[in-house]
Structures are given as C-alpha cells and as structure tokens.
Design a protein around this nucleic acid. Structure first.
Lengths: 470, 470, 470
DNA sequence: AGCGTTCTAGAATATTCGGGC
DNA sequence: TGCCCGAATATTCTAGAACGC
C-alpha cells in the first residue's frame, strides 16, 4: 500500500539513498483509482514514474472522499515526533491508511470506513529527524499523481492549476477551514523559504523555488522552518535603528557599546551601535498598540530592569555608591508598566554630560506620577524628534522610547559614573573597577536575554546585506 | 441570522452597555429554527434564563449531528479581523450562517451546505478590542441554550455533561479533529486562565473559574490570553514573599543585596529585601508540599547551584581557592535534591561573621545525611523565627528556607571569603578581586533566571496593587 | 490461564532469558478459546510472529469483542506490591482471570463480571526488578491478539484504531476513568519515553517509538520512567558528552573549566569536563538532520554567539583589543547558520597553543564561504575522529562540532588572550583583568542558558550513576 | 521512593488576517 | 496589485507539578 512510499522515504532518510546521488523512484499508489502508479522519481536527475498495483478496494471510498469522514486510505499518515513534526531521531516515516488530516468530523465513523492500514508498514526504521507536517504533505502531494495540478521538476514546484489545486488537492492534504486555503498554503510556503518566481497574479499557474531544495525531492524534507522574529526581526530593527540613528543631527559618534570599556581605550563601537542591537532567541513580539508608540515587550522590560540592577551592583562594587537615578527608578515598579523613567526618550551623549543630568534623572516623580505621565505620553506625544534645550541631550520622543532607553542605560553606565566619581572624589581605580564589573555583568545580561551587541558599523552594513538577502 | 446576538456583543464591547451595570439580554436566535429567543441575561446581578422555548426540535437533530459532516447551520461564523481575533479596530463581530469550523473535512462540502454569511454584518459598531475566537465561541456556547451540557452561573462555568459537550457542542463551536477534543478545549481554557475547581477527571461534571471573570458573562470577552505566565507568577510570588517577610520579627535591616557590595560601603538594601525577589520570565511554578515549607522549584535550585558555581569561579579568579562549603556541597548533587546545605535558613550578617561559621558551612555531613535532615526539617521545624545564640546569625527556620538560602549564598559571598582570606593570608586585593567578579557573575545569574532584586518595601506594596489590578 | 504468560515474563525478567540473546517464545493463550498459541517471538534477532494459525479464528471473535465490555477473562490481573509496580523483590507477576481494571469508567460492570483473581499467583520466580503497571499492561496488550487495534512491529507500536482502542482495549488493561483516557495513556507513554511519530490528532492511526525499545518486545519491560525533564535531559546529554569525550584519542586532560581561572592556579576541572555540561531548564531539542551531524539548537547558537560577545567585551575591558577571530566571525552572521567558524570542531588545548592558532582562527573565509563549507560538511564529512597534524589541536570532526565549540570557546578565553597579550606587549595586569571579567561573564552566560559546569570527573561518575539509577 | 492520575504549562508547528513594500 | 512577512491565536505533542496510594 502506502508502505512502499514510506519505506522509500525511509530509505532516503536513512541515508541509503544519498540525496542527489542515486536516481531512485518514489513509487506511490494513486489514491483514486488505485492504480499504484509511482509518480515522481526521487532521483536527482530523472523523474520517472513507476508502477504499482493494489488499492482498488479503497478506490470506491475515495471517489467521493471524506463523505463519511475519515477512514479512507488514500493519504499517508506520518510520524510526527515532536510537535507537529514527522519522524524523529530513531523513527521513520511510516505509512498508514486513512488521511490523517481529512475530515475532522465528530462521529467516529472511522470504524465504518475502510480500516486503516497502519500495519501495512513494512519499514521499521526511524527517520533521523522530524519533518514538519507541511513539508511532509507537500512532498506527498508532489509525489502523488497530481501532475494535473502540481509538479516537482528541476528543483522547482510548478503549480499548473491553482484553482484545481485548491479545490481538489489542498483539502486532502491539509487541514483547513476551506477558506482562503491557497493563501494559507502560501504562508506555509513562505515559512519554509519558498519563493514564487513565476506566475504573478491570483490563480495563475506559478512556480516556487527554495534555496535549500535540490533536485532530489527528498531535500524538501530537510528544509527548516523559519523561526519567528530572529533574523527578520533583527533586520527590521536594524533598519529602524539606523533610521533613528541617522536622523540624529549631531552625527558625531558617542561612546556606547559595552559599559566599562570605552573609558580606557578606544571605543569598540560608537553611537551608531544603537542600530546594532538585534533580538535573537525565542520570539520577541513587537506590539505597538498605539501608533507611533513602541510598547516594550516583557523581555525588553526585563532587560531594562536588569540593567538598572547591573548599575547598582557594579557601582557598589566599584565603591561609587548608588547613582541617583537608579535609586529613583526602581525597576520592579516599572517591570510591568512599560517605559522606564521620566527621562525616557532622552539619549545622553557621554563626554559632555550636563551637570544637572544626574539630578534630572533622579526626578522626584512618584511612581504613580510616572505611570500617569507614561499613559499620557502614549496618547499625545508626537512622533517627531525634538531637540532638547540642552545640546547634549536629545529627546527622542516616545517613538524611540524603549530603544533609546537601552542606549541611555548603557551609555549612562560610564559617564554618569565618571561624573559622580568626580563629585565624590573617588579614585580612578574605583571607577575602573566599576567599569570592569559592569562590563561582565551587562554583557551577560544582554546575552542572557538574547540581545546581541553587534559588530562595528562597517560590519553591520554587511550584516544588513546578509539579512536582507536571507 | 445571528447578527442580533453579535450586535449585542458589539454594543457591550462598545461600552454602550457597561458590563455589570445594565441588566440586558443577549438575544440569540435558536440555531435550528432561528427564533431569536433571548437566553441568557447579561445583567450583573441576576442571571435569569430567558424564555427558552424551542429546544425540543433541535434535540432530534443533535441526536445524530453531523452525519454528513458539515453543513448544518447551527454554529456561528465570524469575521476575524486581526489574527484569530473577533472584532477589533476596523472589523466587527459578524454573524453568519453555516458552521465554518464544523467538520473541516477534506471534501469541500461546505460549499454544498448553507452558504456562509460572512457578509451578513449588520452591526456598525466597532468593538474596542478584538476578542479571541475561543472566548467568543465559549461565550456563545454559554449564551446559547446549552444548559443541558454547560452553564454560566455565579461567575463560574459549569460543565454538566462533559461527554455530551464533547460530542454535541464542541464540534459545533470549535474546529477540532474530534480526537481528544475536550483536551484541546482544556488547553484553551488554561490559556485564558480558567481553572478547574471541581470534577476531577472521569468525564464527571466539572466547573471552571477565572479570576478575571465577573458574574457578567461579557467579562469573559475581556480576558487576556496568557503570554508566558510572567506577571501572574510574579504576583503570586510577591504575595508569598510578603507573607514570609512579614512574619519576620526583627525588621531591622541587615545587608544582603548584591554580593561583593556590602563590605566596602553601606548596603544598598536590607534584609527586608528578602521579600523583594520576584520571578519574571518563563513560568516558575511554586510547589509547597508541606504547609509552611517552601519547596524550591527546579529553577530556583538551578539558581542555587549556579550561585555555588559562581562562588567557585569567582573565588578561583581571585586566587582564593575554593571555599570549603562549596566543595562540600557540589551543586549537581543538590540539583534535584531540594535545599542546599545543613546551614540552610541561616542568614549571615556580614561584618561580624562568627568564627566557626566557615567551618559550620563546611559541614561534613554527607549528602545523604543532608537530605535526611532536610526531610526532617520539612516536617518538624516550626514556622516561627528563632534567633540563634549568635546575635549575628538568624535562623529563619525552614519556613523561609529557600529564600533565605539565596540570601545566605549572596551574603556569604563576601564575608566567608573575607574570613578565608584572612586565614589564608591572602592579599586584600585578591579578596577584592573576588568580590568584583562575584558581583558581575551573581548579578547576571540572578537576572538570567528572571530573578529581580526588588525595590524597597513601600514601593513593593504599590507593585502588588498594580499586579492585583492587572 | 494467563499464568503461563506471566511466568514467562518472570523468567525473562529473572534474567534466565537474556533479552536479545535467546530466541524464545512467549506462549500466550488465545483469549477466546484459550488455546495457547505462541504469538510473538521474543527473539532478539528476528521478530517472527509465531505460528499464528489461530489468527483467522480470533478474527471472528474480535469482530464483536467485549460485548459486555469487560468481563472476559483475557486480560491479566496483577499483584502490585509496591506502588504500581508489578513484580519486584518481594512480589511477582501474577496471572488472573478477569480484568481487574476493566472499565472503571461509566458502567461498573466489573462487579458483574468474573471475579478478579488477584490471589491466583502461580508463579514463584522473582523478577529482578519491578515492572511498572503501565509497561506490563502495554506489553500485555501488545502480545494479546489485539492486532485490530494495536500492534508491535519493528520496535514500534502501531495504533491502528485509536477509537477502538480507547473503547475496547483500554478499559480492559488500564484502570481509568474513560474520560480523556487516551490522553492519560499518552501521558504515560510520555513518561516512559514513547514518542508519537505518526498520526497527528484526529483519532487517526498513529505509532509510537521508544529509543530504549528493541525489536524484542520484552525490552519494553526495562524502560525506566522519566523522573523529570532535567535529569533525563542531563542524562542524555551527559551520555552524549561521554561518548564524545571517550572518542578523543589523547585522553590527557587539558584545562577548560571556567575561563580566567586556570591560568592562575590549579584548574578546578579538566577537559574531561566536556562531558559534564548538562542542560537544565526548558527543553533543548536535539536535532541532527544528517546522521552524524549535530545541528546546534537555537539556544546553543545563542550560547556560542554570546561567548563571542563575552570575548569581545572581556578583551576590551582588559585593554587587549578585539581578538582577531572574534572580528572575523561576527556572531550575527552565524546566528542562524549553524556552526560557528571555519575552525569548528577543533579543540584547543590551552597551555600549548600553536603559534598560528590565532591566525588560524582568524581565517579569512568570507561568511559566504563559511556557509558553503558548513553545508558541504553536513553532507560529506565522515563521523570519524581525525587528529590534526598539530598535536595540540584535535579536530573532532563535525560529529562533535557544537559541543567542541563550546569547549573551544571557553578554553580560548585565556590562552588566546595570552598569546595576543604577548604579541601586543600588554601588561600582565591587563591580561589578568581580562580573565576576571571573562570569568564572571562566561560563567553567567553558561548558567543563563542552563548550562552547568559540572564537578570533577570522579564526582561526575557518581552523578552519572545517580542519573542512571534515576 | 515509585507509580498512576489529573491539571497545567512549554514548545513547535499550523492557521489566519493585516500590513509593508 | 501581489508577494512576503509580522503577529496573534489555534492545535498538538510533550513535560512539569501536585496529589494519592
């Protein structure tokens, strides 16, 4: 039955068939008429149809498929190891009878239908890795006899008849609500990196390619689903940050980068680095409920809080005492509140810290007042950049609120300390100690949240290109 | 069709009907015969059932529902504006005819059934926020005449007949695969914060509550889907910590805070801060098997282990050698064992470390002995605080066990090192180096696990209120 | 009745029949007519079904199986001595008549059925270890004639008819509430390490595999219940690491451990510690797409990136400037690319760093080239370990790629810096400073990702034993 | 200690809508 | 306009935690 197809997949996955090396066929019985015609060759070079028989009994049921619901033996069941994945470390794709995704009806009609043929699995092997359901069904669809609608050829997926595909094939391979099913298909295609290269237009014949796909169709099974929010988010943020950075009048780079670093030697990076923060790790959603207002994510709020904490400990370790603004803006109160301080949005340019800056940061606003102020700002503050009266302080507005805060916090690590150290007549050694400890702590803090301090600007450009092409 | 019901929802969402203020009805047509009988009152105080006639006719149909699969027009289709949400800024809750989500079978039977009425939007209001599909369908299910299976009463969802619900209702309201559909329902319930309070297992009648639900059923529509169990966990922990902190008699603050800090200057925080640790980040479950005994979670155990590791590396970096107690309590052995050392619960007051403290920490208890001791403590130690004979050491008892351990570990960072440094005739510089490295490492470690050093107590109270209202 | 079956199991468990050595049969009486036809061979090499002549006859019987629900005497009762275990030191697997656990669900038919024969213990052997009830019943269910519903073949459990299984089999083998009974089954399956590899949802046919299961069905009886995600994950990783470490030719331990530590004093650990990294915390999936290639997870990639970042900041803090290889391998470019540098897989042995190592690390490969190289490696690199020409550099191949990289990165913290410091004529103090900051940062970084630096090897052995017994 | 049962949560993929370019 | 992607929810599998025995 379907076991041939599956065992074929298993052999491929086992490595017995080197992808792209051995010309081999993936025989798979036709689901409708039962004439098991192997449709798609898994060869690297040829695409030969094979032959097979058997299946006639199930033919009738699949003529009008899924009327009763489930039991028809047309589609393949697959091995999904971890969530939504097919296969696993030591398991293999196994064949079954009923269409797994057909007919989600409630009645247990399965028993009335043709019995499932999971036992028809002749392969005991285990696929070496899980395969997302989509890729499996896609491969299945391509290896079934669906040449009328879709075809795999020359490492490209040709969709000959999108309406027919949507009407006749998609419901059999994918679970959906029958609404905009082709759109959903395309979203999944995007997730797995397929790009439409031909057939612009609604339901016109089109074709898709994937940079990770070889002519061997089994290569599709190795494509990795795109993760949310890593590279693309980074790219977007970088572009955002660049826009922000470029819009700053005084383009003279001010030190930021890793705290504790720049005061002893040349900075490893500059203010342009504001565009070099990139979020990696698990998905970090960007939500902007109010237009123009950047609502920091929880993770970012944590970062901010931890930065303040790092201030505290680092400053204390260096014998500098607590900076005022840290004392006045306890992180916990802000943890779930959004923006951090009344000074939010102001980017300090170290090196020429205004004398009253420390006090300015150490506003006497109560937390309640701060919260209220934040709410008001979220509503009323315009997006435009306004320059503060102090030439060294730029009020970025609420638009840049949160990102700017990160910058502020980092840049404040050192200069504020320097100022305070000068005021307190502390030894340079103590200040240096502060820098060292802060370097370790802040770097780790950023990293622990998946925030990466990026390369220098020249490299960043390259990075952007990479991301753009990725 | 259902537009009356939906427009009613829209009015509520618009705020025209203040939830819990105006007693109003949610007219909704009977699904079968279409007679718009108002079923459930949306009043705040009363929950009067409407004149629900017309159920006998539908009884017959539900005897064998969805034999053919899909087409019955009982369930509501909706317009989901933003993803999976119902209503929102620019879209409205709309009523439709055929059940879009009933039986998503492979055959496009939907087209044969009653045509979907997505365009049948008669309401022009804009709900102030989108409603997740689940909440909408849940509310719909509760306001429909499904008293036989499920009921909304006293701000609680009563499931009278789980099997019947799964068999007869769920397929109509939710798109599912009929396989473990009740489980899926429960997953969604969890996502939205519902908790089962009665009816353990057995397909027995059960009930769910939600802390954000008022008696007004429309309050369900305002429940927010869980993101990652952060704020709620933080709230719970903070309240726990407060309870703990409040039970401490001597409120006089002792230094704790960031390691490496207090030996050079005034403490940045005090013992009251023991109640200011809060967990943020991914969910950190709290388990207390014995009343009054805080059983450290796995994550917290990891923290402790990492603290020991930080001890090790920091001490080594400072040339101090490994402190004895670290050697005697290797972290891995304790990783799954619970509390850390025989000295648990004792908070060291730096500056006047007892002479035997280092040895006391370096107990020769085997791990087995320690475990046994821990178990005994979990049973027998009272919750009250007892003051040690040493005026500088407070035995917090096992009540505060784990939190105190964190404190101990941190506070021990320095003084123990000082003692050992004195014993070893190490230079003050080496000791200072230790403190510096430890400060960076430990601070980062805490932050990396989502542990936050919180604000002072007064501010913490405010935070609690905030969280309580959130 | 079933006592023969049970005594057979007992013999196997006693060790009289070494699993996997002697081909033996598990005679088990046909459930209906009681004719003890050996059905499943317990052979190690072959998994031949016995002379299943009576298959057709039983087929008829299973046409209407369990009409009354429970009462047939086919299933085994058992005596569970200690909680939930079957067999063990003091108890034995016992055979009985009626299904004690049959259908606790809706109808209490059990009482009407044949009385349970728990006392019917006819076997005198003592299994060397207790068998959890679940595994026993599962094995029993698989060796009974339930091919219609469930089948054991090729070290895989095939569930052909989940609804039928839930309805007809589960009540006979497991005490359950019939409510979400399949879900409970699956929870138990998870506990014992079974993973669903086929049949996503929908009461569709599915199959399970278990990494500890051999083709010999009796291997199921030796599966250990999972303790928690930590230890099992740690155990898996540790075994992986051990495999890795053991495969290294020169077993002479080289320092690794915490960076910045070993250059001043005796190392707290050695290269053997490579096997002591253990992942705790949230799940860290292990995926190797191509056999022999370790595909780093996103989390691990982040670790690597953060390590590079730590290099950068630490080096800068120490006034060392950026190490070349960090500049040449910007993390972001590698974040989603898999392995890190062209030097991947090479483990640097500190203390005798090759002169050109820094340059070697600072290869001039462009990122594109690196990527291409990585892809090629994933396909073509053999698994065998090859020793580099430099006696101090071991090329672990791609097999150990990622883990080795962690080691490399750590070990490179110091020696590479030393080399560079020497080249740059930097002061020892600056180098020392680097070490200190790096110690704090790297330690925290590892901890933040749940990576633990383990104890020394001797202790590790103990840990392994603990994990093994756990 | 270990297992079974249940409730809850984590993680990954799937589905769907909207928006940017 | 149409392709691509962000974001949120939905679905499924797996695992953590608590409780009872």
């Amino acid at each position: 039955m379907d076991s041939d197809y599956v065992s074929q997949l298993n052999r491929i996955l086992d490595g017995n068939i080197e992808p792209g090396q051995v010309s081999q066929t993936l025989p798979y019985p036709n689901e409708i008429n039962g004439s098991s015609t192997s449709v798609v060759s898994v060869s690297a070079s040829t695409h030969s149809l094979g032959t097979s028989s058997s299946r006639s009994s199930s033919a009738a049921s699949s003529q009008l498929p899924r009327q009763g619901g489930v039991g028809d033996s047309s589609a393949v069941t697959f091995s999904s190891s971890t969530n939504g994945l097919i296969g696993g470390e030591k398991t293999h794709v196994t064949a079954g009878g009923a269409a797994t995704y057909g007919a989600t009806g409630q009645a247990p009609i399965t028993e009335d239908a043709a019995p499932s043929k999971l036992a028809d699995c002749k392969t005991g092997q285990t696929p070496p890795h899980p395969v997302p359901e989509f890729l499996f069904q896609l491969t299945k669809m391509l290896t079934d006899d669906n040449l009328e609608y879709i075809e795999w050829k020359k490492a490209t997926i040709f969709v000959h008849d999108p309406p027919g595909l949507e009407k006749n094939l998609l419901p059999r391979y994918f679970r959906h609500s029958n609404y905009s099913s082709f759109v959903r298909l395309q979203r999944q295609m995007n997730y797995f990196g397929f790009r439409k290269i031909a057939g612009k237009g609604k339901m016109a014949p089109c074709s898709y390619v994937n940079e990770h796909a070889k002519e061997d169709i089994s290569s599709l099974l190795y494509i990795k689903r795109k993760k949310s929010g890593v590279s693309s988010t980074a790219a977007r943020l970088i572009s955002q940050q660049n826009r922000l950075a470029n819009s700053i009048p005084g383009a003279k780079p001010a030190v930021m980068s890793v705290p504790g670093v720049m005061m002893q030697q040349a900075p490893v990076s500059n203010f342009g680095n504001i565009s070099q923060f990139a979020l990696s790790g698990s998905s970090i959603p960007i939500s902007h409920q109010m237009p123009g207002v950047y609502q920091p994510t929880l993770q970012e709020q944590i970062i901010l809080a931890q930065l303040q904490q790092a201030h505290t400990s680092a400053a204390s370790a260096a014998g500098l005492g607590l900076p005022q603004y840290v004392q006045c803006a306890p992180m916990m109160a802000n943890l779930n509140q959004g923006l951090l301080t009344a000074d939010q949005g102001q980017v300090l340019y170290p090196g020429s810290l205004p004398e009253n800056k420390t006090n300015s940061l150490a506003t006497t606003l109560s937390i309640q007042q701060q919260q209220q102020q934040q709410q008001e700002q979220q509503v009323s503050v315009p997006q435009s950049m306004v320059r503060n009266s102090d030439p060294n302080v730029f009020d970025l507005g609420v638009v840049s609120s949160e990102r700017a805060l990160l910058t502020q916090q980092i840049s404040a690590f050192n200069p504020a300390m320097q100022v305070q150290a000068a005021n307190d007549n502390l030894s340079p050694q103590a200040t240096a100690n502060y820098g060292q400890v802060a370097a370790g702590a802040a770097s780790a803090l950023y990293g622990s949240q998946g925030l990466q301090l990026g390369p220098a600007r020249s490299q960043q450009q390259t990075l952007e290109e990479i991301l753009r092409n990725a």
